[in-house]
Design a protein around this nucleic acid. Structure first.
Length: 502
RNA sequence: GCCCCGGUAGUGUAGCCCGGCCCAGCAUCUAGGGUUUUCGACCCUAUGACCCGGGUUCGAAUCCCGGCCGGGGCACCA
């Protein structure tokens, strides 16, 4: 027994300590994604929770690609082997080891033989449907379970050597046919699949099921604590059954409920199809809700982390909004985000009557930090007249004759009757403040920069940004005043920005 | 049909194991105000919850029973 010091103290949100710490000399946990695509926001809870405790207890985190053969609906996507670590990197999660389930088949075979020899498992060649109705539901033992060890081992060999076609035989663990829970009755732990595996090809045709492979591996890898979704509680029970057979110490099992995001519909299979078909721009398309897509949008990993940790370890299924994540992201990012004017769907106003003294506007890079300087917006006024763009929604909102302010510039009277235009009214901000008139953002027609904004739903909208947007560099997180936050993900030939949130 | 699990403000969460400090804390959302030449950040204020019914107890969000509602499992998927 080693003293496991609890390093966390005055952290704002403290999760409960891990159970039975004293039983483990070291905290070892694991991340076990099935590599079917990049990690997405729905997987973030699993990752962050495990990482949180490993860091808190100075433990070890193992990345285990749970890449067994899967099923027709669940197939290994080779790109995922790179996309998953990429997502972990973004979340600042460090894995101390990386392991591939597909490298460990021999180990699972070894234990399969041992379990058969101990009469804890048997090879069943019943039809799955028959087995379910005649045996499982009626709680009647399967005739295969009475076969001798020798017969079972012979059957096992036939599974391996190809004599048994796919689905014609499987290894069942003798958990007991009289268990009140039908889910627990002699569950299949290994089965045949002739599918090709992206990493090991056709080397193996007998593959373990999740609950079995983990029953072995959680022990083999010395996993002390397991935090996983509650859809895996049955699997946990089967693991415990295996641990009991061998008298192994039980890893501590913890479950959390499922999260649904109100503003995000997650479907890895749909994403995969759309990415492959080119409908989505790639695995970082906002509609995939992949970790990559969140990074592209400039969602700070700490914002995600905080939101996930705030959920705690509740086992209740929840439906949460992205709002808390966005709120946290604004808090983190606001201070560092330069301001800029971007006008979507511009309406060009013919401005007239501008005093000759007004030739250029200076607006703060950040209103809370004047020392960061100003952005210069040249006007190119010709005889007191100039064309300035405002967003169409603002234009529609302001009535004929109403006084409004173009932020950092001056106050104007709206003229709509013939053509969109505005007449200079005054310079002083207070004039418009007194009447609570609108203060809106704008861009000059000359020298402004076209910008493409990729929205969260994948749609792209064209906009025009003020001249100082010229030379914006990829990776810059910024705020378009009154439009929202975003991150530049392309700067050549065109500036393209991923919209983050309001 | 069988087996688990759970129900605290709109949303999420703390408290429940070891009943009183909870006329229930926090975050987000919403509304209003302050600051600000942004619908951002920051500061302040307000509204808003213990699923229902019994029981135990001096005292229950916390313990017990029943009900209702919700989620998950019963795959040769993970």
């Amino acid at each position: 027994m080693v003293e496991v010091s609890d390093k966390l103290e005055e952290e704002e949100k403290e999760l409960p300590p891990l159970p039975n710490l004293e039983k483990w000399s070291k905290i070892i946990m694991r991340l076990a994604p099935f590599p079917s695509g990049p990690l997405h926001i729905g997987n973030a809870r699993m990752v962050i929770l495990n990482d949180y405790y490993v860091k808190r207890y100075d433990g070890e985190l193992i990345l285990v690609f749970d890449d067994t053969i899967g099923s027709e609906e669940k197939v290994v996507e080779p790109d995922a082997y790179d996309l998953i670590p990429e997502g972990l990197d973004y979340l600042d999660v460090k894995c101390h080891r990386t392991i591939y389930k597909s490298d460990r088949l021999d180990l699972f075979y070894k234990y399969a033989v041992d379990l058969i020899e101990r009469r804890e498992a048997y090879v069943c060649d019943c039809d799955a449907e028959v087995w379910r109705t005649k045996h499982k539901l009626e709680m009647k033992a399967c005739p295969c379970s009475f076969l001798s060890v020798e017969d079972n081992l012979a059957r096992w060999e036939r599974m391996l050597d190809g004599s048994y076609p796919e689905r014609s035989a499987a290894v069942r663990l003798m958990t007991g046919m009289t268990d009140p829970d039908p889910a627990m009755r002699d569950h299949v732990i290994l089965r045949i699949s002739d599918a090709e595996h992206p990493r090991v090809g056709a080397k193996y045709r007998v593959w373990p099921l999740l609950e079995y492979s983990w029953g072995i591996d959680d022990h083999e890898l010395g996993i002390s604590h397991i935090i996983r979704g509650k859809d895996l509680v049955k699997e946990g029970k089967i693991e415990q059954h295996i641990w009991n057979i061998y008298g192994w110490p039980h890893s501590e099992l913890m479950y959390y409920g499922r999260i649904r995001f109100q503003d995000a519909k997650l479907s890895k299979s749909k994403s995969r199809k759309e990415v492959l078909d080119g409908v989505y721009s790639g695995w970082d398309d906002p509609r995939t809700w992949s970790l990559q897509s969140l990074e592209k949008r400039g969602i700070h990993p700490d914002a995600l982390r905080k939101a996930m940790l705030d959920l705690g370890l509740s086992v209740v299924d929840i439906s949460m909004s992205m709002k808390p994540v966005y709120s946290e992201n604004r808090k983190i990012r606001d201070e560092q985000s330069p301001r800029l004017f971007l006008v979507l769907d511009p309406v060009w106003l013919s401005i007239s009557g501008l005093p000759t003294s007004v030739t250029e506007v200076e607006a703060p890079v950040h209103p809370d930090f004047p020392e960061r300087g100003v952005r210069k917006i040249p006007l190119n006024v010709k005889k007191g007249a100039v064309s300035l763009g405002v967003s169409s929604t603002d234009f529609q909102r302001i009535d004929e004759g109403e006084v409004f302010r173009l932020k950092d510039l001056a106050n104007f009277t709206m003229r709509k009757k013939k053509a969109p235009s505005a007449l200079f009214y005054s310079l002083d901000v207070d004039d418009v403040r007194r009447i609570s008139g609108p203060i809106i953002h704008w861009v000059p027609e000359k020298e402004s920069i076209p910008i493409e904004l990729v929205m969260i739903d994948g749609h792209e909208v064209e906009g025009v940004a003020e001249p100082s947007a010229k030379g914006l560099k990829q990776g810059t997180f910024l705020q378009f005043e009154r439009v929202g936050f975003g991150k530049v993900f392309e700067d050549d030939p065109k500036i393209r920005v991923a919209f983050s949130h309001k």
